[in-house]
């Protein structure tokens, strides 16, 4: 019970601290696309894949006192930072299973910025299409982000690297 909450908590525990809801959304989406067993439903939104279910789950975890949310004013907008609380760590002790490879994967993603993770998640969203078509999609759908060819190639290479890092994963 509350297994899906625990999975999100495990991901956050592995990452340490996540700065920004957008970043958090993209990290869980990417992990899901790498076959980690996250079952939140994602849709394509203005800023790439987004899950309302995940937003609600994070709100619940904050309300329960398992996550600490700090609201910070950035230049012209608000940003939220998330860390596990002591109660959250205690909650996780009820779940003694592990998702092998997840910690490494979350830590690696947390080193990237939200803009790049938005690109990576968008590439993954369209990965059933040939690379040229994906590039076209990004040029049209993400025109304001002005991603370069090099950044898109970098995103592909990054996905490959992440996949090989965590190929030895297991299902809960």
């Amino acid at each position: 019970m509350l297994t899906e909450h625990a999975k999100v908590m495990k991901a956050l525990a592995a990452a340490g601290e996540i700065a920004g809801r957008k970043k958090l959304q993209k990290m869980i989406y990417i992990a899901k696309k790498l076959d980690f067993p996250f079952y939140e439903k994602f849709d394509f939104h203005f800023y790439g894949p987004y899950s309302e279910e995940l937003t609600c789950r994070i709100e619940e975890l904050c309300a329960l006192g398992f996550l600490h949310e700090v609201k910070e004013k950035k230049s012209g907008y608000m940003q939220y930072r998330y860390t596990l609380t002591e109660a959250g760590e205690q909650f996780l002790r009820h779940y003694d299973w592990d998702m092998p490879g997840l910690a490494e994967c979350m830590q690696a993603m947390n080193e990237q910025n939200a803009r790049f993770l938005e690109l990576v998640s968008t590439v993954l969203y369209f990965e059933h299409l040939p690379k040229d078509e994906v590039k076209e999609k990004i040029a049209v759908l993400k025109s304001k982000q002005r991603y370069t060819e090099e950044e898109i190639d970098e995103a592909y290479a990054y996905i490959e690297a992440l996949r090989s890092r965590c190929h030895n994963k297991a299902r809960v």
Binding site: Y47, E52, T55, Y77, A114
Partner: peptide, 16 residues
């Protein structure tokens, strides 16, 4: 969160 009908939140820049 098992039934996420979304009610309005302004959210964060770049979230939605």
């Amino acid at each position: 969160s098992d039934l996420p009908y979304d009610f309005y939140r302004p959210g964060e820049e770049g979230e939605r």
